[in-house]
Write a protein that binds this DNA or RNA. Structure first.
Lengths: 110, 110
DNA sequence: CGAAAAGCATAGTGACACGAGGTATGGAAG
DNA sequence: CTTCCATACCTCGTGTCACTATGCTTTTCG
């Protein structure tokens, strides 16, 4: 479960350049070093939603193979949204860090 | 939204020692440096659930003021669970790090 | 005294990721 | 040529889970 961070992840996957849905899944798998292996049922609705919100744009393209694909790209607003997510993530991650800092597993203070 | 990390946060708040519900809320606020200000409706059910799962134990106590409080403490299993959450968090956080690493905001490579 | 804070509790809601299921095509294997 | 797999897209339903709203009691302070 990606709990609320899915949009950021998808946007981040497209930060390197446009890609179609299936490729986004692979890009996420790659960038996360296999940690995130998201099913289509997660990605496609996310892409639709992000396009709906104006953070992504899409166009149908035909690969050399003759196969039709829907290629998504970050819009300017999408890039800005990603930057925002980045900032929020940092705060969130720092806060968790603070929570976990207190008393690590079981280290006996001298 | 703490989606999925709530249990870890509550367990972490109790890692420093036993506390009652209200104090857990304050401890979380403190450790997270105000980032997490969780409502009672989030904490109490979480405490009940964690006790149900055997990760916390509780006993009613009476403060000097005469006020009755329910004081929670980590069980051994709770401590182990926290360690597990810690490990999962590190993986998760590293994976997100990998996602965000690719192309930071808009830094022109020389 | 009256109000606010401390303290506990739960029922209901809403967001959201995910599973399951459905369609179609190109290439490889038989 | 047919079968099967990988590629590629889409959507409905469900379960999880944090949070809102609400309610109650007791202590403290103005």
């Amino acid at each position: 479960m990606l709990k609320g961070h899915l949009d950021m992840i998808v946007l981040a996957a497209l930060a390197a350049g446009p890609a179609h849905g299936y490729a986004v899944i692979e890009e996420i798998r790659r960038k996360s070093r296999q940690a995130f292996d998201l099913p289509e049922g997660t990605i496609y609705p996310a892409l639709h939603r992000l396009e709906q919100s104006g953070l992504l744009s899409s166009r149908w393209m035909t690969a050399e193979s003759g196969r039709r694909r829907r290629v998504y790209a970050l819009t300017r607003r999408g890039a800005r949204a990603l930057a925002g997510h980045r900032a929020v993530w940092r705060q969130f991650s720092d806060a968790i860090g603070g929570m976990l800092a207190g008393a690590p597993p079981s280290r006996k203070p001298a």
